[in-house]
Design a protein around this nucleic acid. Structure first.
Lengths: 405, 405
DNA sequence: GCGGCTTAGTATAAGGCGTGAGATAAAGGA
DNA sequence: TCCTTTATCTCACGCCTTATACTAAGCCGC
């Protein structure tokens, strides 16, 4: 009997978090447990402070149902977004409302992992001290990084773009922060955020694409993130779209990223339109805005975007054929900027290139959370663990005043 | 308490089936159960006839361990391969050794579903009568079909190549056969066979490709078949390999299948070499043999195969990037014929086109079971249910003399 | 060849936990 | 106020795992 109770607790907590407030009858239906068990489990959870009664529903003849909810103030979760050009630390309550933010002015591309961890953990500890001073409890820290996170004994990070190769980030952080720490790839945390709180909400099979300078994807199979054998699944940006095409920064030829990545688009535009000259220090986001604006009147710009939509759509059609998702979410800063203009064409290409059967069963939509949701997603890692643990986080890390917890 | 015992029984049965004979100590380790529970569960299973003691291991000081095994003769499973051009019915014991075969001379492409089911179920019932006459028990029937199998209330089959659209095949078979019936796509059953008994054995994350006239794939994530939202995942043959390329029979342009499917290869060869003229009634398998033979001396043939390997390898690299598998199995009759020649080039392309990290963690190997393993795979569907059910198959279907079972 | 040692497997008792049935609570309506 | 309805809780029951102690069955050394 390996912890049957934990399974029941998790079964009850999950719909409370993901679908919002519920009554006990609804929970019996959603969990498949007996009403007696729901009563028991909820009783414990209320005792522990994780769940609160927040009201009652109108009755139509019988006893009114009590509405139950996770207590958003039960604890806070911290998300850390280690980006290529800066670090962002945010704290959220259990309703995923932002409670505090801190920015760290360290360029991970320009410093080694030790420096990055030093500054990031200092920011976390500062936030922690401040919030605990206000009497709030921190449950854990989720960290998003721009690279593959190998989940073996520890979380080892391989991130060529910032020069990390097998950095034991989990251990480094845990040495400096007295909290549970969880590490994951940034595209995957963004995907988790969209999945739980954005355009993927309510779907079980989803691909969340991340369209920016680089291109990635987070694949959700039956509601859970698909990692593959060594956590690198979802490298959509380096799938081939043009046989023997132009060389990509990854060394291969004809990658999607080399054709529709933000920088690639800008270079294509400059090549097609002699009047456009890109500066040395390229502010990609501003220039993508300009490209979108120009597309209304300028044929070269419009052609660049049309080709981008076709490539993106073709690659998305491949995802549809391979994964048969219910939904594809177009996210990432470039996706959010280009999507409104390109989505119709992308959908058209998906319908034409994917098999009819899966194509009619998928919807392609824009992300809803903005490009800064990486830290939000990182913080959901801790919530995920909390839910999976039935309301308890994996041992240790000396949680003071957590007697019953 | 939803059947805790069933979970324990399944935990014990699975390694006994997948990894062969075990002793109780090993099972304790493999299942995580206590030795007492293993004793209890094994005791029940021996009583029921599913497990037998088959010997004892040498001791080195202590009491010798008793070796336990599934009783291969406990029951038989029947696999039905409904192919595009014929139907094959095979019976296997629980060690997956073939016990009987029957071929049905009905061309599913030329008859409607009713006729196909009529003949197939007649063949199954004949085999059943014969085997039961010999005192053997049939546990169930697995059916493989060349199309998408939608697993909703019943198994609905969408198979354009034989003109089926939403055929309720599960129901049709169950009306004629008094046994549990399970239906699945043929590429997926072949994959399951390779996964359990062939080149995928021992791997958790695998893609089994099916290279024939058409091209498909079965994707295994953490040991279980990935179906997607509507069971059509794995349509690798219709992923795009050439932007805006030649039209495929699916209506899209540039599909892998349109470039490296067996028929496509032969047409390319005929187009490149004027001396090759394909007959109206094309025996693809024989001609592929001829193509392979010609490649040794004929430049046109060699070029066709070289291009095929490049396209196949590129598409396989996409699989590596997206799924991060530990192993890719090249199966299907064309794959088995071409593989020995093309595998080195395919591996080369995968290494060049996939990202370094996942590429170094995958092996590309030939299938080990031959192209006729589709029926074998179909029969494993029943074994799968038997294992998942802890040694009992889902109710009903009046299993005579199955008092305790 | 006989005790001692080691390891495998079994019996027993204790305790955790879900469940169904019935009890109780809390409304609306006559 | 009482009846009906629906929600929730209580409790006894039984399933199942597990810890513990015990038995079984071999090797080893004297």
């Amino acid at each position: 009997m390996r912890d049957l109770r934990r399974v029941s607790r998790a079964a009850v907590l999950r719909p409370l978090f993901l679908d919002g407030p519920q009554n006990r009858v609804g929970l019996t239906r959603l969990t498949g447990l007996s009403s007696a068990s729901v009563t028991n489990v909820i009783g414990d959870l209320i005792q522990e402070g994780l769940v609160v009664e927040v009201g009652r529903e109108e009755s139509d003849g019988g006893r009114p149902r009590v509405v139950l909810s996770l207590d958003p103030g039960f604890g806070l979760v911290i998300g850390v977004d280690v980006g290529e050009t800066g670090i962002r630390v945010e704290a959220f309550d259990l309703s995923m409302k932002e409670v505090a933010v801190a920015l760290v002015g360290v360029h991970p591309q320009e410093h080694d992992a030790g420096v990055v961890v030093e500054h990031a953990s200092a920011a976390v500890n500062e936030l922690k001290a401040q919030l605990e001073g206000e009497g709030r409890r921190i449950l854990g820290v989720g960290v998003a990084v721009p690279g593959v996170v190998e989940h073996d004994s520890d979380a080892h990070v391989h991130a060529p773009s910032i020069g990390w190769d097998g950095v034991p980030l989990g251990r480094l952080f845990r040495q400096r922060i007295e909290l549970p720490v969880s590490v994951e790839n940034g595209a995957k945390t963004l995907g988790q955020a969209e999945m739980w709180l954005g355009a993927g909400r309510g779907y079980r099979h989803t691909v969340v694409t991340l369209w920016a300078t680089g291109i990635g994807a987070a694949i959700f199979a039956d509601g859970t993130l698909y990692r593959g054998a060594a956590s690198s699944a979802g490298e959509w940006g380096h799938t081939n779209v043009v046989a023997g095409g132009t060389e990509c920064r990854c060394g291969a030829h004809g990658c999607l990223e080399a054709y529709v990545g933000a920088e690639a688009l800008l270079r294509q535009w400059a090549a097609a339109d002699g009047t456009v000259s890109l500066p040395e220090e390229l502010d990609q986001q501003a220039w993508i805005d300009r490209l979108v604006e120009a597309a209304g009147s300028n044929a070269a710009a419009a052609a660049v975007l049309e080709r981008a939509a076709t490539h993106f759509g073709t690659a998305a059609a491949n995802l549809v054929n391979l994964f048969n998702p219910e939904r594809i979410v177009v996210g990432g800063w470039a996706g959010l900027k280009l999507g409104p203009l390109l989505l119709p064409r992308i959908r058209e290409v998906v319908a034409a290139q994917a098999l009819h059967y899966p194509a009619t069963r998928v919807t392609v939509e824009l992300g809803r959370l903005g490009a800064e949701a990486v830290a939000l997603g990182a913080s959901t890692l801790i919530v995920e663990e909390l839910l999976a643990g039935g309301g308890r986080l994996p041992e240790g890390h000396a949680q003071p005043s957590a007697a019953r917890f």
